[in-house]
Write a protein that binds this DNA or RNA. Structure first.
Lengths: 222, 222
DNA sequence: ACCGAACTGTTCCATTTTGCACAGTTTTCC
DNA sequence: GGAAAACTGTGCAAAATGGAACAGTTCGGT
């Protein structure tokens, strides 16, 4: 019986871990500390990564000096899969934002299993569709919304991102500089809005950020 | 023998047409005139589209009133494939920007063939990877570049887009309003830069737009 | 416990961008 | 052919954003 692809907003509910266990897929585990780089922009690309635990920031340096944070990956996400389609080098730098366990899957091994295991390639297609969707939503937001709204949306998504454990809405630790690079603005701007949000009670922070979802969602309506 | 996925920048060199002929894939053809809608945002989504000939604009209305043009599709591109992953409705409106022939593939038929034909699902994965890449590049550009550069880049991509026939660099006809919605700015701004580019000889236009690639590329360097 | 590095809070101004308005031109459609 | 609709060329004031600077604070490592 053929299974319809699953879907979700932030982390695809796609449970590849079970899949990775079912399928006989050769992999090596890697442990990374907070802020430790996993691969660098320009490195030769010959493996696909899978986040087992923790979180990963993927950033790209564009043109001469400007940097963008394109995605934050969490448990269940693949990254570095560009190498499957003839990209010889990494398009950006991946680094851990928390203690992180990564499965490293050799490109050819990944291709072999995609060929051999139907259920795996179907799941992977589902994963790619979910990611496409997320990228498209990010692009739409960038095209349509003010930086205040983009920040609110990013905070909400990051809050949901931590959903695996805590019932509260604490975010992965993340500097204002990083937030600025995620929403395409300057740190001044992020700082300004963060204080604004705090004054209005939309978020709290002493070091860790906690968001009040319903209040912050109001920003997106306006 | 397993074939490595192909890759390209604008239209994946992925030749799904040959594939669609090889595979026994049920489909119906649809003809659309310029500006004719193919599907509307909110419509029930139960088929995947494949562009046989022509061009398609995919736009999304976000929030209350603002609109973004997320992608322009050409021959060889799929669109509306979100429905494969449990999206019940169309996320945006697709309409022809030129006389266009579309293959409409029923969602279940598409899923059937993806299951049945390895080479097809591998090609489709390659296509999804290429699209991911393109979306990511658009996002990066949006995060890093000024509107002048974004316009220049968009014009260059659109010029390449027409590469199937003409050796010259004529673009598909496209209003300044549409360009504005593609790069996330206002028509005033687009008009300003278009005149600027024309003065400097980067582009010509009497009605159709023609770009001088090498000169226009200079804008991206600055 | 200390030092340096990284991060935050804050200010200020130049520039970019928006949003609007209106006249002239081209296209489309009857 | 002619009217309506869509598109372009302007201009301009208000708002948002970028960019830099600097002091105070927290964090990380030794």
């Amino acid at each position: 019986m053929f299974m319809k692809f699953k879907r979700s907003k932030v982390n695809p509910s796609f449970d590849a871990r079970a899949m990775l266990d079912t399928v006989r897929l050769a992999r090596t585990a890697g442990e990374f500390r907070r802020a430790e780089p996993i691969f660098l922009q320009g490195d030769p690309a010959d493996s696909v990564m899978y986040v087992q635990q923790g979180g990963v920031k993927f950033s790209v340096v564009h043109g001469s000096h400007r940097e963008a944070v394109v995605a934050i990956f969490g448990p269940g996400d693949f990254f570095g899969e560009g190498c499957l389609s003839a990209q010889p080098t990494r398009m950006g730098t991946a680094s851990a934002i928390a203690p992180t366990t990564i499965f490293v899957i050799d490109k050819n091994e990944m291709l072999r299993v995609l060929r051999a295991e139907h259920s795996f390639s179907n799941q992977f297609i589902g994963y790619l569709l979910a990611r496409n969707n997320r990228l498209q939503e990010d692009l739409i937001d960038q095209l349509c919304s003010s930086s205040e709204k983009r920040l609110a949306r990013t905070l909400l998504i990051l809050a949901g991102f931590a959903k695996q454990k805590q019932p509260d809405r604490e975010l992965p630790r993340m500097s204002q500089t990083t937030l600025a690079k995620m929403i395409g603005t300057t740190r001044s701007r992020v700082n300004f809005f963060m204080n604004e949000f705090r004054k209005r009670g939309f978020i709290e922070y002493n070091g860790k950020i906690t968001v009040n979802r319903s209040l912050l969602k109001g920003v997106l309506e306006a």
